[in-house]
Structure formats: C-alpha cells, structure tokens
Design a protein around this nucleic acid. Structure first.
Lengths: 119, 119
DNA sequence: CAGTATCCGGTTTGATACTG
DNA sequence: CAGTATCAAACCGGATACTG
C-alpha cells in the first residue's frame, strides 16, 4: 500500500518543478515580442527593417532590444553583411530552431481560439 | 514557372498570420503567472490558498486577478464549496485542458534549457 | 540602413492593511 | 478562508530626434 500513495507531497513537488521550468522558459522568450520575432525568423533570415515591417506594431527600440536579448540567449545570430549601405541579417541558431514547435503550437492554439470565440 | 514562386509576398502573409495567432494566444495566457496557474491546475483542482502556496512568488492580488481573467476566458471554473469556513476551488474547464500540451512543452523546453546553460 | 539616447506617460506589480 | 482597497515603486514601451 505504501507505494500507491502518489499524494499531495509528490504532486506538490512536480507542480513546483514545472513552475520553475516554465519560469526558465519565460525568462528567455517571455517578452512581448520575442515569440513573434522567432516565429518570423523561422521562415527565413531577415533584416532589421524587414522585421520592423513584419512584426506589426513593434517599435525600433523594442525590436533592437528584443533582438539583443535573443542574441544573448543564443537563439539568434546577428550578421553584418558587406553591402552599401550596411545591412544586418538575423537568423535562428540551431538552438533557436528548437523553439519552432513551441511557436507553432502557440500559433495553432491562437487560430483555434479565434474560431472558438467568433463562432 | 508561375506556380513555383512561393515568394516574399506569400511568406509575408504567413508570417503576419502567425503573429496575429500568437498575439491571440498571448492575450489569453500571456500574463506573468497564467501559464503557471494552468500548469498547477492541470494536476488537480486547487483552492485559492493552495495556489498561493504552489505558485511561488505570486501575491494574493495577482492570483485573484489572474484567476478572474482565466475564468472570463473560460479556461477555469470557480466553485464555492459549502464548508466552514467557505472554501473555493478552481479547476480547468475542458477548454482549459486544451492548453495542457502547451504548458508541458513550455516546461520541457525550460528543463532542457536549464541543462544547457548549466552544462 | 541600423540602430542609440532621451523623455515621459501608462501599466503592472508588490506590500500592507482591511473585510465578510 | 478568500478575497478587496489603497498606495507607491518599478518597469514597459512609444515618440522623437539623433548617429555612423
């Protein structure tokens, strides 16, 4: 009988474990725009100005700030191209690609949710 | 040749579509604590005071506010139990359960990320 | 083009004290 | 127990102007 008690204490532990993990994830992609940026870059690399156009509503300040943070967390790479004038390209790292399924799930749920509340 | 051009314009469209969807999702579960709360409740229904203990760091004010918003979006149900003194239980709705896979993915990524940055 | 600097209002959040 | 009320601090984020 001893072994059958997956009780409060156990679940409590799993609960806190999950919360800590969720917190860790949100530290990295929790900003207002980060997931959107990652979602964009998962199509193909983009320049600063392209992102500015694609991510509707974002300001230049926010974009560069979020990009910097994503870069710090090794999710994207910044690459200065040798053009005139200089252009800068951002792309997902291999590690950043591991977020693709997540951004897709989030987008999927959103699509369904919209159907739900409209219908 | 016409049909082969899945070009900028097309991708642009998908990009914005996804961003809108992501935005829709975040409107609902985008708060600082919402995903954690949902993650907790996905183990079993909990009372207000239990959640206050489980979701480390949250204040009473925030908890009740986030719960109210989750309830408004029909992700959880509030049920007043006939005890002395009164206790209140929160649990996921069927619709709220559809977020379970998402919260799990988010937690999983966080676990892995912690390994990554420590290792 | 790709940002940075500054200013500034609005929102979010926490602490604390209180209520039924 | 399950909240609400109030105040103050912190942070977020937009507009604008500027740099290399």
């Amino acid at each position: 009988m001893e072994t059958k008690k997956t009780t409060t204490k156990e679940i409590n532990k799993m609960c806190k474990h999950n919360i800590r993990a969720i917190h860790d994830t949100l530290d990295v992609i929790g900003g207002k725009w980060k997931i959107s940026i990652i979602s964009c870059l998962s199509f193909y690399p983009m320049r600063y100005s392209e992102l500015l156009r694609e991510v509707e509503g974002i300001s230049g300040k926010m974009l560069s700030r979020e990009l910097k943070e994503l870069e710090m967390n090794q999710l994207i790479v910044r690459e200065v191209l040798n053009t005139h004038p200089i252009t800068v390209q951002y792309q997902l790292t291999e590690y950043g690609e591991t977020l693709k399924p997540l951004t897709l799930s989030i987008a999927d749920w959103g699509v369904n949710h919209r159907k739900q509340i409209i219908g």
